[in-house]
């Protein structure tokens, strides 16, 4: 009879389409959440309402976990074949997600907060959770945000996308082509999620928020910047002296998890040390390149 088990890692030529694997990634994390009594929302990607942005591709599964349940879900995932390959601190300048990989199901981004949504991660989750819907992913019933909230979240994601064509397409469908009613729904969710800073990128009004401690984070995310500028923005956005010192101290450490992925094998102590020295130099080189570019621009 025509049945076969698929054991290979997700790769070109694999017999299971990527979207099927990702659907099962959602189902897997939902199974785990159900088992350990955790609340989570499936966001973006396969979980996105297909009427929002037609034919939008995706390459991983994204879930937003109630902050108080994050540690529990992470621990359970690692008990069931999910390998942590990038932790929160090194995931992005917003330190919002950890990345896990599964042999059969591919990549999962586990969000402990959604950049731009607040006023606190707990409040943002509660607001989204209060109007959740369900959809079926990988054969499992999964909670997703309401349609208008999905649009607002995707626009906040696009606000961090810089010149990414996919982000531009999202903005085109969700904002530029949106009806007045759809725009109003988005704006309502932006208000409810205290997301005016991040959303100001979409409206072209980011610079009106220069005094906000997180302004630089959004500026660098939306318009680009050097590694140094990114870390400076992280420090500025961190709340309180202790948090600022923590971020600043970490900026010179080496992301061993990331190095392991890049090299495709465990990294040696020598490589970690080499990276320790190379990283600040790389930041400096980027700064110099930017300065030279600006100088040349002025001399033209």
């Amino acid at each position: 009879m025509a049945a076969r088990e698929v054991a290979e890692v997700p790769a070109a030529g694999a017999t299971v389409p990527l979207e099927v694997r990702i659907g099962f990634a959602h189902a897997s994390v939902q199974w785990i959440a159900d088992r350990c009594g955790a609340d989570l929302l499936h966001v973006k990607g396969a979980a996105l309402d297909p009427t929002l942005v037609p034919d939008r591709g995706f390459s991983d599964a994204d879930v937003l976990v109630r902050p108080a349940h994050v540690a529990r879900v992470l621990a359970e995932l690692r008990q069931h074949g999910w390998e942590l390959i990038n932790s929160f601190a090194y995931g992005s300048s917003f330190e919002h997600s950890a990345t896990l990989r599964h042999h059969d199901f591919g990549l999962l981004d586990l969000h402990r907060l959604y950049p731009g949504a607040g006023p606190t991660p707990e409040a943002a989750f509660a607001t989204l959770w209060s109007e959740r819907r369900t959809t079926t992913l990988g054969g499992r019933s999964c909670a997703v945000p309401a349609r208008g909230a999905q649009a607002a979240l995707l626009l906040l994601h696009a606000a961090r996308g810089g010149a990414d064509p996919k982000a531009a397409r999202d903005v085109d469908y969700l904002w530029h082509r949106a009806t007045d009613d759809e725009r109003q729904q988005v704006l309502d969710w932006v208000d409810r999620l205290d997301a005016r800073l991040g959303f100001s990128v979409i409206l072209g009004e980011l610079d009106e928020h220069r005094d906000d401690p997180a302004y630089d984070l959004w500026r660098v995310a939306a318009r680009g910047g050097t590694r140094m500028e990114e870390w400076r923005a992280r420090v500025r956005a961190a709340r309180g002296l202790r948090a600022k010192a923590h971020v600043a101290g970490r900026s010179v450490l080496v992301n061993v998890e990331h190095l392991t992925i890049v090299r495709g094998r465990p990294v040696s102590r020598r490589e970690v040390i080499a990276e320790f020295f190379d990283r600040p130099l790389r930041g400096a080189r980027e700064q110099l390149a930017r300065l030279r570019s600006a100088r040349q621009g002025r001399n033209r």
Binding site: A2, A3, E5, V6, V20, F24, S28, G81, H102, D104
Partner: peptide, 13 residues
């Protein structure tokens, strides 16, 4: 496609 949850594998029919 049939997957055992939460950890696979995936069976293709």
């Amino acid at each position: 496609y049939v997957a055992r949850l939460p950890a696979g594998p995936i069976l293709v029919l």
